[in-house]
Design a protein around this nucleic acid. Structure first.
Length: 116
DNA sequence: GTTGTGACGACTT
DNA sequence: AAAGTCGCCACAA
C-alpha cells in the first residue's frame, strides 16, 4: 500500500470522525468533504479497514438512500442500527427518517434526522 | 494483465 | 417505485 493511499484513508477517517453525534452523513458526502468527489466506494473501503483504536463513529455513515449499506440481517447491520437508535436517530421503513425541517445542509450532505 | 466483487452514487428506463 | 446502466477504483484471485 502506497503512502499516498494511506493519506487518502486518513483524510477519510478524519472526515468521518467529524460527524457530530446524532447526525448522519452519506458515503458520497464524506468523500466530498475529504476532497475526493466521486470516491464513495473508497469511503466504504476506508471504514472497512479502519483501525479500531481510532474509535470512529462509523455507524453514522449511510448510503445516499439513508439506508444501512451493510448486509441486511448481518451482525454488523444490527449493531449499526442499534448504535444509531442509541443516539436518538429514528428509522422508518428501514430508512433513517430524514426531516429537512431545519439544518439540512445540502452542500455538506450532512443530514439532521428530525429531533422533535 | 484480467476479472469479479463491493460498507456507493447519479441517471435513465 | 423499481430495476438497469454506467462511472468509480481498491483488492483478491
Amino acid at each position: 500500500m502506497s503512502v499516498t493511499d494511506r493519506k487518502l484513508l486518513e483524510r477519510i477517517w478524519k472526515a468521518v470522525a467529524a460527524i457530530p453525534r446524532g447526525e448522519v452523513a452519506s458515503y458520497g458526502g464524506i468523500a466530498r468533504r475529504a476532497g475526493l468527489p466521486r470516491r464513495a466506494r473508497l469511503v466504504g473501503h476506508a471504514l472497512k479497514v479502519a483501525p479500531a483504536n481510532l474509535k470512529l463513529p462509523w455507524h453514522r455513515v449511510l448510503n445516499a438512500q439513508g439506508r444501512i449499506s451493510l448486509p441486511a440481517g448481518s451482525r454488523a447491520h444490527r449493531m449499526q442500527r442499534r448504535l444509531l437508535e442509541q443516539e436518538g436517530i429514528v428509522f422508518r421503513n428501514g430508512r433513517v427518517d430524514l426531516a429537512r425541517a431545519a439544518g439540512f445542509d445540502l452542500d455538506a450532505l450532512l443530514w439532521r434526522p428530525r429531533r422533535d
